[in-house]
Design a protein around this nucleic acid. Structure first.
Length: 449
RNA sequence: GUGAGCGUAGCUCAGGGGUUAGAGCACUUGACUGUGGAUCAAGUGGCCGUGGGUUCAAAUCCCAUCGCUCACCCCA
């Protein structure tokens, strides 16, 4: 027999039971919040026609599409994100957007990247989008969801950065380099990372004329103190940007949208300390057209945990008729990685609540009826099938973190009882067989409160 | 795609030309005859990633290759 060496593609992972518990935990929180805001689930295939995905993201990203060598080798690809498949669904079912289609979607996506910290080839995106409305109130709602989500997961110091593509384009227009708008955006996006001089150098290298660079920086100097602004400071920043760019329609509109978002967020109860307007935020994907946002947790240092924005023209690429849309994407793995680093993940490595431990083979059948009784009472219970020694049984329960062990042994049975051991408290008591399920339930609820 | 670093026990790593390759943790067994996180003792476990080269001698130096990690680009 030929032995195949077991291995796994770089950038993909197996999720063991203890990790799945965390994934389920975070996903259920996400679903709860999404549904609370009226969004409904959708799923799409892993495989799409290549031309459906191609040309939507941008030149660099195009290389990262996973193409499938099916038939001619170029007609299919694995999905790269959940937004383009959604736009395809809407293009095929245009009626669902009357008046608005609000969906969430939690599925894996694939990117042909070189993996590194916080970056995988297969990972799970958790998207919420609203399709059909051009109202900036929806943008605010998405940001409110992001905020509630981050708070609900236990993050204390996070920052929702908000900007607008229209303002970014305006900066390039103001500097007289509209044709290089994308390039300019990419450079100023790095301000935080490489500093003012770094950005200047990079702009020079890309042949942006010195006077244009100066003009770009007169706008960037209006940048607010990220994350620390009060409402009034935010308004002042927006006003200053608007004043500087007032001769250009597009950026003026962009500023106005942010102002409306700011007002809406106040009504939606999003604290000022949790978001900021950052005119350096760019986002790489081509399909964003209006407000864009991103969440960074500085302590975690694994890039953005959440990213999104308005994408009003994507669906039009399929139908010729534009349908406005806005939404965001949560990176499941990055959220969990960050929560792990900040100790925000709940303890507990198993969901099993009770282990029934027969003392010897002769008591196995009896033990089966007991474990069955526990399950009938909706207690997650398993039986230890190898009654080799009570020591090993306890060791197993301990390793796995099972809170209660029900010992079925001759001494107790003679009195019509079983032993119920609370592992955490190291307390053990004899309980009448008639009552042991109730007793187990009591111990479990005591512990959980 | 560009660049850097690392591959030694199940895990984290030491050893950086010279007998038979080490430690901690984990695992197995025992002290403990019906009880798990502790302690102590003993034990199992290695083609030193793979292939070639230099050398009297290679885990150690050189080359290649594979794998992993990190950074750039871009992104969740």
């Amino acid at each position: 027999m030929k032995i195949i060496k077991p291995r796994i593609l770089k950038g993909t992972r197996d999720f063991m039971p203890n990790q799945m518990i965390y994934r389920d935990f975070v996903m259920s929180k996400l679903k709860t919040v999404f549904e609370k805001y009226g969004y409904e689930p959708l799923a799409t295939p892993a495989i799409e026609y290549f031309d459906v995905l191609s040309g939507k993201y941008g030149d660099e990203v195009e290389m990262l599409l996973y193409r499938l060598a099916y038939r001619d080798g170029r007609t299919l690809a694995l999905k790269y994100d959940l937004t383009v498949p959604l736009s395809r669904v809407v293009a095929m079912n245009p009626d669902i957007v009357k008046p608005v289609f609000k969906r969430y979607q939690i599925q894996p996506v694939w990117r042909a990247e070189k993996p590194q910290k916080g970056r995988y080839r297969e990972f799970t995106q958790c998207d919420v989008d609203a399709v059909g409305s051009a109202s900036v109130l929806v943008d605010a709602e998405i940001i409110a969801i992001i905020n509630e989500m981050m708070v609900s997961l236990g993050f204390q110091n996070f920052e929702i950065k908000i900007n607008n593509r229209k303002i970014l384009d305006g900066i390039a227009e103001y500097a007289g380099v509209s044709d290089k708008s994308k390039l300019v955006c990419r450079c100023i996006d790095k301000l935080e990372k490489i500093g003012v001089e770094g950005v200047k150098d990079e702009l020079e290298e890309r042949d942006i004329p010195p006077n244009a660079i100066d003009k770009i920086f007169t706008i960037l100097s209006l940048r607010s103190k990220v994350g620390l602004d009060t409402t009034r400071e935010k308004e002042a920043t927006l006003n200053a940007i608007e004043e500087r760019l007032k001769e250009f329609d597009n950026p003026r509109q962009g500023v106005d949208e942010l102002r409306q978002i700011n007002d809406s967020l106040k009504c939606l109860g999003v604290p000022d300390a949790n978001y900021s307007f950052d005119i350096c935020l760019a986002r790489g994907l081509d399909y964003y057209t209006g407000p864009i946002f991103e969440v960074v947790v500085k302590e975690a240092n694994i890039g953005s945990l959440v990213g999104g924005g308005r994408w009003d023209t994507l669906i039009g690429q399929f139908t010729g008729r534009e349908i406005p849309a806005v939404g965001t994407s949560f990176g499941l793995e990055r959220l969990i990685d960050a929560m792990g680093m900040l100790s925000l993940l709940p303890p507990g490595q198993t969901k099993v609540q009770a282990l029934v431990a027969p003392f010897n083979e002769d008591l196995m059948m009896q033990a089966l009826t007991y474990v069955s009784q526990l399950r009938a009472a909706d207690i997650k219970a398993e039986i230890y099938f190898e009654p080799d020694s009570i020591r090993n049984t306890m060791g197993y329960a301990n390793r796995k973190g099972i809170p209660i062990v029900v010992i079925v042994a001759p001494d107790e049975l003679q009195e019509g009882k079983v032993a119920v051991r609370n592992m955490q408290m190291k307390r053990q008591e004899k309980v009448d067989i008639a009552n042991f399920v109730t007793r187990v339930r009591e111990i479990l609820t005591d512990e959980n409160t």
